[in-house]
């Protein structure tokens, strides 16, 4: 085990972090839309939201990645593995985030919205100024958890050939015959990334005036 190898694994960790950040942010945006759809009173929208959440939460990420990796070329979209991986991670996390957000929205105490109505706020104001901020506060810990989940789940992109942390560790393990060391260091990198996300999350919580969970 040399410093060189640790640095090589570090580049893998950077790739893993990048994949996670992109899929979490894009996933959040899609998640908000899906959440809105599943809370909608329009039946087809609601159904679409529910089925979307159920499917992408119900299928193992590995299977989802294989599906996207093999289906896209058949649709004439010859995309590199990284893009297939990003699409898979994003679809997966958007479904989880949509469900988390839905839980937050449903659990905002109705009295708080009634109080808004009684001081004369309109529906839009109640949604944007009362319901959404409270829902976000309720769901922030779960969203941080989701970021940690996707960080770990991103290790599966190694099967579609993306050079993330796990793939790098695999390659180095077979070339150096040091699998124990390589996977242990890779694990340490994942732990480190998770600790950073955890601290970032509680920092964000403090910024939003939340007490630690």
């Amino acid at each position: 085990m040399t410093w060189e190898l640790v640095v090589l694994l570090g580049w893998g960790a950077v790739m893993t972090a990048a994949l996670s950040i992109v899929s979490i942010t894009v996933g959040l945006a899609i998640g908000v839309l899906i959440c809105a759809a599943s809370l909608s009173r329009v039946a087809p929208l609601k159904w679409f939201g529910r089925v979307y959440v159920s499917f992408f939460r119900g299928v193992p990420l590995l299977v989802l990645l294989l599906l996207i990796y093999h289906v896209l070329p058949q649709l004439g979209l010859d995309v590199p593995g990284v893009v297939a991986a990003l699409i898979g991670l994003t679809l997966c996390t958007s479904a989880y985030q949509a469900e988390t957000l839905r839980g937050g929205f449903v659990n905002v105490a109705p009295g708080l919205m009634e109080a808004g109505r009684m001081v004369g706020l309109n529906a839009r104001q109640i949604l944007l100024r009362i319901r959404a901020p409270i829902a976000l506060r309720l769901t922030l810990p779960a969203l941080v958890n989701e970021a940690i989940m996707i960080l770990k789940a991103s290790s599966l992109v190694s099967v579609v050939g993306v050079g993330d942390l796990t793939r790098t560790a695999q390659n180095l393990a077979s070339s150096t015959f040091l699998p124990l060391e390589m996977f242990a260091v890779a694990g340490a990198y994942y732990l480190l990334l998770n600790i950073v996300v955890g601290y970032g999350g509680s920092g964000l919580g403090r910024l939003l005036g939340l007490r630690p969970a």
Partner: peptide, 23 residues
């Protein structure tokens, strides 16, 4: 518990399956 919950299952299984024989 923290280490298991903080690392991917895939890495754990690699560690056990490929690293195991070395110990």
């Amino acid at each position: 518990v923290g280490v298991i919950r903080g690392t991917p299952f895939l890495v754990q299984i690699f560690l056990l399956y490929y690293g195991g024989p070395f110990i």
